Amino acid sequence: MASTSAASAPGAALPWGSRTYVMGVINLTPDSFSDGGRFDRPADALHQARAMLRQGADLLDLGGQSTRPGAMEISAQQELERVLPALELIRSACAEPGGPRFSIDTFRSAVAAAALAAGAHWINDVSGGRRDPAILGVVAEFGCPYVLMHSRGDSRSMDGLAVYGDVVAEVRQELLRATDTALAAGVRPDQLIWDPGLGFAKNTEQNLALLRGLAELRREGFPLLLGPSRKRFIGAVLNEPRPRARLWGTAAVCAQAITAGTDVLRVHDVGPIVQTARMIDAIVRPPLG
Rank of each mutant, 00 (worst) to 15 (best):
D269V: 11
Y164M: 10
A162P: 12
G17R: 06
P100F: 09
L136K: 12
L176K: 02
P133T: 09
A95C: 09
G199H: 08
P97W: 09
I74H: 00
R230Q: 01
G249A: 12
A114G: 08
L208N: 13
R266A: 03
F233Q: 10
E205H: 07
L175T: 12
L148G: 14
G137N: 11
T106D: 10
A134C: 11
M158D: 06
R242C: 01
R242H: 07
G129S: 05
I104S: 01
P10N: 00
R130C: 01
A93M: 03
P287M: 03
T262A: 15
E220I: 13
F39R: 14
R41F: 09
D31P: 13
P30S: 14
E96Q: 13
V111M: 04
E88L: 09
E79I: 05
V171I: 14
G199A: 01
G213L: 12
R82F: 00
L224F: 07
I258C: 04
E141W: 02
E73L: 12
T259D: 12
V83N: 02
L225H: 02
H121F: 00
G64Y: 06
P97Y: 04
I26H: 05
A93T: 10
R68H: 09
S155L: 01
R54D: 14
C94T: 13
L161S: 06
T20M: 11
D44E: 15
P272K: 06
M149C: 15
H121A: 14
A162V: 14
P145C: 12
G271H: 15
